[in-house]
Computed example of a mutant assay.
Amino acid sequence: MFEGMLHYGFKPDSVTFLSVLSACSHNGLAEECMKYFELMEHEYGISPWKEHYSCVIDTLGRVGRFDKVQKMLSEMPFGDDTIIWSSILHSCRIHGNQDLARVAAEKLFSIGATDATPHVILSNIYAKAGKWEDAARVKKAMRDRGLRKELSYSWVNSNKKSIAFLRMTNPTQ
């Protein structure tokens, strides 16, 4: 669609590029995402927003390109952002990157993340790697901060009735 838009003489703007980068992210198209990000700034003179960087970092994280994630972070002209660091943490969970996961979780703690999610994800990463002491240390820090994992609900509509299902969690989480 983007190429067709250019073919018919339409000039892309920041929102156009945000849509293209988001599409690349959701489809794991890391090389294409980087191509459009570079095109945006160098060909069209559009300065990237934090949201553009977020899409690129998410895309790179989804495919496990943590070297490029760290490069983007170092070049990004914005301060720490919970969405970007959450995206990185989730990518680290998928790919088992313990070192960057610890950095991402610490960033989220330092910028005021108020839910238990970073603790739970980091603990699960350590547990999956067999680092039980590290996993327990993260869970203890979560409890010490008074954070609890939120309950999960699912809703089903059937015969004009709504039925809610509650996922029970381990009370020690």
Rank of each mutant, 00 (worst) to 15 (best):
A113D: 13
S14F: 01
I57R: 01
F37P: 01
I163G: 04
I83A: 08
R148Q: 04
T16I: 07
A116G: 00
A113V: 11
V20G: 07
G64S: 14
F17K: 09
S110V: 12
R62T: 04
K140H: 09
S54H: 14
G64E: 08
R137G: 06
E133T: 14
E51I: 05
N97A: 06
D144R: 04
K128H: 13
G112H: 06
R143N: 06
F37D: 04
P77E: 11
A101Y: 03
R143D: 05
M168S: 14
M142S: 00
F165S: 04
G64I: 10
R143W: 01
E32R: 11
D144Y: 09
G4V: 07
I46D: 03
M1F: 11
K140Q: 12
Y126V: 01
I121E: 02
T16P: 00
K50G: 13
H26Q: 07
F66T: 01
W85M: 01
M5K: 07
G64C: 06
V56G: 00
I111W: 02
H42S: 15
L147H: 03
G112C: 09
I57D: 00
H90V: 11
W132P: 07
K35D: 15
R102I: 00
Y36V: 03
K161Q: 10
E3K: 13
K50C: 15
E41W: 13
E150Q: 13
L147S: 01
M5A: 01
V63N: 12
V20M: 08
S22W: 06
R102L: 07
H95L: 01
D144E: 10
C92Y: 06
F66A: 05
P48G: 10
K139D: 00
E43W: 06
H52Y: 04
T59D: 05
E106H: 10
V69P: 01
Y153L: 10
G45W: 00
L21W: 02
T114N: 07
W155Y: 10
R62K: 09
S87H: 02
R93P: 02
D13S: 09
V15T: 11
E150P: 04
H42C: 13
R167M: 07
N170M: 09
G146H: 01
K139W: 02
L6M: 15
F17W: 05
Y53K: 02
T82R: 15
V63S: 09
S110C: 13
V120D: 00
E51D: 09
E150V: 08
T172I: 11
